[in-house]
Amino acid sequence: MHTAVPTNCTSAEDRALRESATRELLEARSRATDPGERQRLLERVAELNLEIARGIAQRFRGRGVEDDDLEQVACLGLMKAVRNYRVDDGVPFIGYAVPTIRGEVKRYFRDCSWTVRIPRRLQELQGKIAGALPQLEQELGREPTLEEIAAKVGAEVDEVTQAEGARGCFTVLSLDRPAGHGDHDLALADVIADPEDPQLHRFEATEMLSPLLTELDARDREILELRFVENWKQADIGHKLGISQMQVSRLLTRILTGLRTQLQPTGAAA
């Protein structure tokens, strides 16, 4: 490819160019028979779309998992998308990659992360307290006070209080276990809220739609912009374009149905 392909896309044109280059590479990979060449093309596709994985990882930050771990899991999801994507399905790569990466990150939270993440200093302090308590109890013949524990481990009383308050945060509960007595038909995952991040949805919509919007003709793009960006009513759009409100409604239905069909992932992770 002679045209430089952007890896940090700031416009719909950039995303469309990246999508086109991605498809060319994937088509070349599907034709290649040499394992080394197939691996090189796979890595090139991953490099080209790394921004997508990083963007999804960024929107899951602040939920108790280290940023580096999140990005690594998102990149694994990207590699899975590259390996499993089928060019002949007719789905844009971005339409397959985004739900695949998101699914990989969600599975990581589901299977591997702690219920609560506490600072490392408190983790280490909990270890010291656990080692000091038996000795203190033996020496004092009673349960030690927070002040006595703090003096023994060389910490402030407030730190000991925080460490003791966080005790038990390392316990990982299976999301498949029953939620409680009498809830035999419900798993824990069924009763834990899973709020969706609206920023993540907007990011996904932008990434997935941009390459497709550039393929629409000028009138279709104008109709979408007037309706969903400018918030015009269908009657006003029709007046501007010299057509009836019914025609605008039919055009919108056709445009949205076409976009929805192109974005429908085949076999992607949810």
Score class of each variant (00 low, 15 high):
Leu125Pro: 05
Asp220Glu: 09
Leu48Gly: 09
His2Met: 15
Lys106Asp: 08
Thr206Met: 03
Leu125Cys: 06
Gly180Met: 12
Ala205Phe: 10
Thr161Pro: 00
Ile243Trp: 01
Asn8Val: 15
Val248Asn: 05
Glu47Trp: 10
Gly62Ile: 00
Phe228Ser: 05
Ala32Pro: 04
Ala16Met: 12
Arg167Gly: 12
Ser249Met: 07
Leu175Lys: 13
Met79Val: 12
Ser113Phe: 02
Leu209Val: 03
Lys106Ser: 02
Arg219Ser: 03
Asp67Lys: 12
His239Lys: 09
Pro134His: 05
Gln58Cys: 03
Val105Cys: 02
Val229Met: 04
Ala189Trp: 03
Ala81Tyr: 01
Leu216Ile: 04
Ile129Lys: 01
Asp34Ile: 05
Asp89Asn: 09
Leu48Glu: 01
Asp183Glu: 15
Ser244Asp: 12
Ala270Gln: 15
Thr206Ile: 09
Ala179Leu: 10
Asp158Arg: 15
Lys80Thr: 13
Leu122Pro: 00
Ala130Ile: 07
Val172Gln: 15
Arg219Lys: 08
Gly168Met: 09
Leu48Met: 14
Val191Trp: 08
Tyr96Thr: 05
Asp88Trp: 07
Glu71Arg: 15
Thr33Asn: 11
Ile94Pro: 00
Cys112Arg: 14
Glu104Phe: 06
Arg31Ala: 12
Arg120Gly: 07
Leu26Met: 14
Arg102Lys: 14
Asp197Ile: 06
Leu175Thr: 10
Gly258Phe: 04
Gly168Pro: 10
Asn8Gln: 14
Leu241Val: 06
Ser20Glu: 15
Ala150Gly: 09
Arg202Pro: 00
Glu156Ser: 08
Asn49Gly: 00
Ala205His: 07
Val248Glu: 08
Arg250Phe: 03
Leu226Gly: 01
Cys9Phe: 00
Arg61Met: 10
Ile243Thr: 08
Lys80His: 11
Asn231Phe: 02
Cys9Glu: 11
Met246Pro: 03
Gly154Glu: 11
Met79Ala: 10
Leu188Val: 13
Leu212Val: 04
Ser20Ala: 13
Pro195Thr: 04
Glu148Trp: 07
Ala150Ser: 10
